[in-house]
Amino acid sequence: MNIIKLDATPSTNDFLKALLTNQFVENFTVVTAENQTSGRGQMGAKWEVESGKNLTFSVLVKDVLVEITSIFHLNVLVAVSITEALQRFTISNLAIKWPNDILAENKKIAGVLIENSLKSNGEIFSVVGIGLNVNQKNFDDLPKATSLSCILNHDLDKEAVLVSIIQNLKRNVALLQIGDYDKFWEAYNQKLFKKGIPMPFEDKNGVRFMGIIQGVTANGKLEVLLDNDSLKTFDIKEVQMLY
C-alpha cells in the first residue's frame, strides 16, 4: 500500500490531484494529513477537525468506472466500504445519509468527497476524499457529530482504521470491476438513513414538506414519496433532510 503521510496540507484531495498532473501515480495511492487546513465536504462545505485526532485522507481509484453515467456506483461502493470497515471495530447503528455521509447512533462520524476527472482517452480517475472522526472528544459546536472514540469510550489506532478502510475499498473495487453492482446497492439501501420513515425536508427555495425516502436512483438522486402519493426525485443541491 503506497501511503504518503503529510503533517499538514490545505487539502489531501488537491495534493493528490496535483500529483496526478505531474507524474504517474499508482492505483490506490493514499495521501493522509494530520492537519487539513482547507478540507471540503459536499457542495463546498468546510470540513474542520482537531489536528492529529482524526483521519483525513484521499485515495486514487482508477480503472473502475468505464463511463461517466456510472459515477454514482463508486459513491455507493465507498460508503459501503467504510461501514463494513467500521463494523470490524464494533461500531453499531451505522447508517449512510444520502449521498454518502456516514452516521453512527444518528450522528455524523464521516464525510466523503469524490472528485472525478475524465482524461482525453476516456479514462476516468477518481480522487476519493474521506474525513473520519476517530479520537476527537469535543464536538460542542457540532451537536450532530461524534467520533469512534466517543462511541467506544476509548481511543483507536488510526493506522489500523485506515488500513481496514483501504482493504475493504480495494476488495470491493475488484468486485465492482466484474460488474457486481447489486451487492453494493443492496447494502447501501439497507443502511440508508431514515429510509421508509416520514420526515421533514426543505427544498432549495426554503419550502418545507413531509416525505418518505424510498431509495436512491442509479444516477444518485433521492427518491421521496410525497403526501399526495407522488414519487419525486431530488439532486443533492435541491433538497435538505431536517433531522
Rank of each mutant, 00 (worst) to 15 (best):
G44D: 14
F24R: 10
G39S: 02
G220W: 09
I109S: 04
G129T: 09
N100D: 01
A45D: 01
L231N: 02
K237I: 06
N100V: 01
F209Y: 14
T56H: 02
L192H: 06
L175G: 06
Y188E: 12
G131D: 01
A218M: 11
W185A: 11
G111E: 05
S149I: 08
S38H: 05
A104N: 06
W185K: 04
I212Y: 10
V31Y: 03
T21E: 15
K183W: 07
L142G: 11
K183G: 00
N172T: 04
F15R: 02
I3N: 00
M241E: 02
L19H: 13
L20F: 00
N27S: 12
D7N: 15
M43E: 06
K158F: 06
V61A: 12
M1D: 10
I212L: 13
N13S: 08
T12M: 11
L55G: 05
G44S: 14
S149G: 09
G215I: 14
N106L: 01
L225N: 08
E159V: 14
N2D: 15
T146K: 12
H73T: 07
I96R: 09
D7V: 15
E202D: 00
V207A: 15
D155I: 02
N172P: 06
H73N: 15
T12P: 12
A79D: 03
V163D: 10
Q190L: 13
L148Q: 01
G129E: 08
V78E: 02
Q167N: 09
D229G: 04
F15N: 01
S164N: 04
K183Y: 10
K108N: 07
V112A: 05
L148W: 07
L176T: 07
C150L: 14
V127I: 15
G206M: 13
F72S: 05
I91G: 01
Q36I: 14
I124N: 02
R40Q: 15
T69Y: 07
F201K: 07
S164I: 04
L19Y: 09
A174Q: 13
A160E: 15
A95G: 03
D180R: 14
N228G: 01
A95E: 05
I109E: 06
V25S: 06
P200N: 13
D227Y: 03
N133W: 03
N153W: 00
K5A: 14
I212M: 12
N27D: 14
K183F: 11
T233Q: 13
A110R: 08
K183M: 13
L176G: 04
K97M: 08
R208K: 12
F201S: 07
F201Y: 12
I236E: 06
V161G: 03
V61T: 04
D229C: 02
G44R: 11
F234Q: 15
S147F: 05
F209S: 09
N138F: 00
D235Q: 12
I91V: 13
T12F: 06
D235T: 12
Y243E: 00
G211S: 01
N22C: 04
F89H: 09
N168Q: 12
T32N: 02
Q23S: 10
T37I: 03
K191P: 00
K232W: 01
V49G: 12
D101N: 10
S70K: 10
E26A: 14
T29L: 03
N35F: 09
V80L: 03
P198H: 10
S38W: 00
E84F: 02
E26H: 09
E223S: 15
Q36F: 05
I114W: 08
T9L: 10
H73R: 11
F125V: 05
